[in-house]
């Protein structure tokens, strides 16, 4: 059951818009980086936190909750924004993002309410989630574990150990979501250490795989709310996304893996988002 204290944001498009605007403001204020990946994952987070996850923001460690592991920790501005708007902590706390003495680190940190697991080094989230999913199976619990991965981090060997593991142990309570924005730190994934055919690889690892538009909320919702898609198989959603999505001058531009928008760029970006939003 989804908590119904969230009526203001049941519209996931409005939720996504707010996540994007807040992420831009946070990255601008902190002069931090990774806004491109924060924008590409925003729709996935918006749908998960508004319509899919069974959670209670007033009780972040409620035993029966669905778990979400954000393995692409560098894009956590959007995760923190989502958690705040979902009610885990007041919006004002986000002003600490990346500031001296704050626990809002610019790679997701467990001290932030709602963050289950600190990440930053890639390839750690999926094995940890496998442990959680195995615990649920052994204890007979029926909550699910979602993991959001970047495409670049699929190059880490630890993930492929975990893909083997999850299928072998029939962890159908585990759902991996790959934010496939096709870019990594120094260029195109396909030029650096290509993943294709990604879906075929995962299927051959005995995962149940779906390939969708990672900005289409209906597709995201239908896929994630209905997982597991095959009893006994872990699910992987390949979400095809655009790095920098929603801000035209950031879209598919490598430099926005690093740059922080200045005041003028921030205003322009927010205007572009508002103009282009479905909300």
């Amino acid at each position: 059951m989804i908590n119904r204290d969230f009526e203001n944001y049941l519209d996931s498009h409005l939720f996504a818009l707010k996540i994007r605007i807040k992420s831009l403001q946070m990255v601008h204020a902190a002069k931090s980086s990774h806004i491109g990946g924060a924008l590409s994952v925003a729709d996935l987070l918006a749908v998960l936190y508004s319509r899919v996850l069974n959670i209670d923001p007033k009780n972040p460690l409620w035993d029966a909750r669905d778990r979400l592991i954000f393995s692409k920790g560098h894009a956590c501005a959007s995760l923190y924004a989502a958690l705040s708007y979902r009610g885990f902590f007041p919006e004002e706390e986000l002003e600490g993002f990346g500031q001296d003495g704050s626990y809002f680190l610019t790679h997701s940190d467990r001290k932030v309410p709602g963050v289950e697991f600190s990440t930053g080094s890639l390839g750690h989230g999926l094995p940890f989630a496998c442990g959680m999913a195995l615990a649920a199976k052994r204890k007979g619990k029926n909550w699910r574990v979602f993991v959001i991965l970047s495409d670049g981090e699929m190059e880490e060997g630890s993930n492929w150990e975990a893909f083997l593991f999850a299928a072998h142990h029939r962890l159908d309570n585990l759902i991996a979501v790959i934010d496939y924005n096709k870019m990594q730190a120094l260029g195109q994934v396909s030029d650096i250490l290509g993943l294709e055919p990604l879906g075929e690889k995962l299927k051959s690892f005995r995962w149940s795989v779906r390939d969708i538009d990672g900005h289409d909320h209906d597709q995201i919702y239908k896929s994630l709310s209905s997982a597991p898609w095959h009893k006994g198989s872990p699910s992987c959603l390949i979400a095809n996304t655009v790095k920098g999505k929603g801000v035209d001058f950031m879209e598919n531009k490598l430099e926005w893996h690093y740059r922080s928008p200045n005041a003028q760029q921030l205003d322009l970006a927010i205007a572009k988002l508002k103009k282009g939003s479905h909300a």
Partner: peptide, 26 residues
């Protein structure tokens, strides 16, 4: 047997799985 696991020859995953299990109370 219900509290045993052979994680295979995959130590990075083994350590991560151990952390996940411990997080859930083991």
């Amino acid at each position: 047997p219900e509290r045993f696991l052979n994680a295979g020859i995959a130590e990075q995953n083994m350590a991560g799985v151990a952390a996940g299990l411990a997080y859930e109370g083991y």
